[in-house]
Amino acid sequence: MTFARRPLQRLVGDASPRTLWLLAILLALLLVAPAILGKYWLSVLILALYFAYVGQAWNILMGFAGQLSLGHALYAGLGGYIAAGLFFHYGIGPWAGVFAAVATAVLAGAIVGYLGFRFSLAGVYFALLTIAFSEFTRLAFDHWEWAGGAGGLFLKVDGGTDIVNLRGGPLLFYYVILALAAFAFILCRALLESRLGRYWLAIREDAEAAQAVGVPVLRCKMIAIVISAALTALAGVWNAFYYNNLFPETAFAVGRSIEITLAPIIGGLGTLFGPSSAPSCWRDWARPSPTSARRSASPASSRSSMAWRCW
């Protein structure tokens, strides 16, 4: 799991200079994009980056370690609720609250993972277990007064920019999610190139064979779900402060979990570029009308119309 003497070289690995240049150009373009794009396209880009980020987080568990989780809304919802609740009730800013949020999600991930992996629940059984946990949590939050119950939790919007409390316009959230997405991309690359990453691939291909050659299967799976949950919780915190409202019905919805899985599945499981690039393709580009109530083809259409209304 430790890096070789030159970590940077290891990170780059066998990537060609052309790939690196293209990545640098892409990053530069994304950095200057807000200056060129209008409000609407910026909001689309924000959502695309959000899905790229959570897709990357989910991909660690499914794409690398091969464990199908359909309950990732649990970690995003927990993260968002904890950070937003701390801010709402005690005025604790999200930069501090994020630690509590991530710790809670890591604990939840460890519980789900331990219960599932201890008995080698695999495939669809594990997926249903994760759904059961997220539904359980959704019902619990429905009745939890501290978190606002079924009526939802709303953060105050005063229009000013306050980076300390992560309050501000879309531009702030754009750069935060861009940083997160870039961080997740590099982290996934580093993980994939590490010994742990190779263990995960072995488990994904054949868990019993991996066990036979001495891979600590349970520990590796646990690390995968914990890292994945932590990253997803960060997305949840960002999501809560971007939208300023949280409802158990949407934060822990099975549909939210499905949305998270879409980008990596369309882009390619276990790849780095898949989860990052797919959201920009499958997004519903049509400018949604305020009355749009379509929820059919793309679950994102309702989300982008929500983003549109935030303006």
């Binding site: 946990f133 539904e135 019902l139 009745h143």
Partner: peptide
Amino acid sequence: SLKSMFSF
């Protein structure tokens, strides 16, 4: 409304 939570 808490009954499903019980079964989970």
